[in-house]
Simulated scan of single mutants.
Amino acid sequence: MSKSNAGAPALLDAKLLRLFEVLYSTRSVTRAAEELGQSQPTVSIWLGKLRHDLHDPLFVRTPTGMQPTPRADALIQTVREALEALRRLSSWQPEFVPGTTRDRFRIAMTDASHITLLPQLLAHLRAAAPLARFEAAKIEADIGDLLQSGAVHMAIGLIPELESGFYQQALFDQDWVCVANARHPRLGDGLTIERYRAEAHIGIVSGTGHALLESALDRHGVDRRVVMELPGFLGMAAIVGTTDLIATLPRQSGEMLARINGLTVFPCPVPIPSFTVKQHWHARYHHDAASRWLRGVCVDLFQTRTIPGGGGIRRDE
């Protein structure tokens, strides 16, 4: 048998193992060629290599066919076990059963998604995977590293900085609305651009959405009078509901907070570009069964439409 550079025996070709098995069963080169879909000369060449590699004639021609040598008799069980292992490997499919898994799933999302998406998502996940554990994480600056390492399974939001090596899938579009106290003293008949400029505002000063909003306001020459800034959505609805401050935020978050807290929703009088909320994951986990299931749940729950290239396209493709 030939030797590799490291001195270990070279591995036998799978087609030679298959020939060994078929020839042992049929005792005929002609029938082996038919079963393998090869010509007799090809099978003869393969048999010659098999004999060379195993240092034995293996099969000897007799009046009753190609009879195995004692070495072939000794090796047939090992050959069959090797072929069975290769068959199992070729047909292996990752198994994931949500109902019995005890996996821990970590999903990164904005605090706005904690309000709008997390309750529905958690209710579904607990019903489908009652033994699993779920964790909501922040979208931090190192989110790419966390997705690559598997510390975070998926990130949901507007995360344009995720580029090479990441997949993304569109879930839903977001435009912008304004929310105000239902008893606001000056907005009884609507929110005009003039009133938007004149009123005091509460601002959320974190996240990609904030940067998108500020850029649009600057472009249209709208200088809001922000008297209260918050790092996130926690507490915003309570402040709006007890003051005359106006908040400008993505529609889904605004409508959800208004519904829960009795606020009034107005169309935003400033044209702010809409954006698409997507789920993101690293290419390492694209075929992981548990991750695929989790992504499928989010699609079933939240996807309203797709965008060109939104169906799991890597940003570097």
Rank of each mutant, 00 (worst) to 15 (best):
residue 31 R to H: 06
residue 84 E to P: 00
residue 222 V to P: 05
residue 99 G to K: 12
residue 100 T to G: 03
residue 118 L to N: 09
residue 240 V to C: 02
residue 85 A to I: 08
residue 105 F to L: 09
residue 227 V to A: 12
residue 279 Q to T: 08
residue 278 K to H: 09
residue 113 S to C: 10
residue 158 L to W: 14
residue 32 A to F: 01
residue 48 G to A: 06
residue 268 C to G: 02
residue 283 A to C: 11
residue 198 A to T: 09
residue 111 D to E: 11
residue 160 P to Y: 08
residue 73 D to H: 15
residue 213 L to Q: 05
residue 98 P to C: 06
residue 87 R to D: 15
residue 84 E to A: 14
residue 47 L to E: 02
residue 136 A to T: 11
residue 238 A to Q: 14
residue 295 R to Q: 15
residue 174 Q to G: 00
residue 194 E to S: 11
residue 168 Q to E: 11
residue 21 E to I: 01
residue 222 V to Q: 09
residue 69 T to Y: 07
residue 12 L to M: 14
residue 30 T to R: 14
residue 231 P to M: 04
residue 59 F to I: 05
residue 254 G to E: 01
residue 172 F to E: 01
residue 118 L to Q: 13
residue 285 Y to I: 02
residue 65 G to K: 08
residue 297 V to G: 03
residue 181 N to I: 09
residue 20 F to L: 07
residue 94 P to I: 10
residue 111 D to Q: 12
residue 241 G to V: 01
residue 22 V to A: 05
residue 180 A to H: 07
residue 263 L to S: 07
residue 18 R to T: 12
residue 273 P to A: 06
residue 41 P to K: 10
residue 184 H to V: 07
residue 275 F to Y: 15
residue 83 L to N: 04
residue 45 I to R: 15
residue 38 Q to R: 15
residue 65 G to W: 05
residue 129 A to N: 04
residue 311 G to H: 08
residue 137 A to G: 02
residue 215 S to P: 00
residue 238 A to P: 00
residue 168 Q to I: 00
residue 175 D to I: 00
residue 188 G to H: 12
residue 295 R to S: 10
residue 248 T to G: 08
residue 72 A to H: 07
residue 7 G to T: 07
residue 65 G to Y: 04
residue 111 D to S: 13
residue 49 K to T: 13
residue 18 R to W: 00
residue 290 A to F: 01
residue 101 T to Q: 05
residue 143 I to G: 05
residue 153 H to G: 14
residue 291 S to F: 03
residue 120 Q to A: 15
residue 160 P to T: 10
residue 10 A to T: 14
residue 151 A to E: 13
residue 174 Q to F: 01
residue 99 G to H: 04
residue 55 H to P: 01
residue 195 R to F: 03
residue 222 V to R: 03
residue 68 P to T: 08
residue 153 H to T: 09
residue 292 R to D: 03
residue 92 W to M: 11
residue 254 G to M: 03
residue 63 P to I: 07
residue 191 L to C: 05
residue 265 V to Y: 04
residue 125 L to P: 04
residue 71 R to F: 11
residue 192 T to I: 08
residue 263 L to M: 08
residue 147 L to M: 12
residue 168 Q to D: 04
residue 3 K to S: 14
residue 246 I to H: 01
residue 5 N to C: 04
residue 112 A to C: 11
residue 66 M to S: 10
residue 194 E to W: 03
residue 125 L to D: 02
residue 178 C to L: 04
residue 203 G to C: 10
residue 141 A to L: 13
residue 18 R to H: 09
residue 202 I to Q: 15
residue 71 R to L: 12
residue 171 L to V: 05
residue 130 P to R: 08
residue 38 Q to T: 06
residue 2 S to M: 06
residue 304 T to N: 02
residue 317 E to P: 00
residue 207 G to S: 06
residue 93 Q to V: 14
residue 215 S to E: 15
residue 24 Y to K: 01
residue 138 K to P: 15
residue 234 L to Y: 11
residue 291 S to T: 13
residue 32 A to H: 00
residue 59 F to Q: 07
residue 71 R to D: 10
residue 191 L to E: 07
residue 236 M to S: 10
residue 252 Q to V: 08
residue 291 S to M: 11
residue 256 M to W: 00
residue 276 T to K: 07
residue 56 D to R: 03
residue 5 N to A: 13
residue 34 E to T: 09
residue 230 L to D: 01
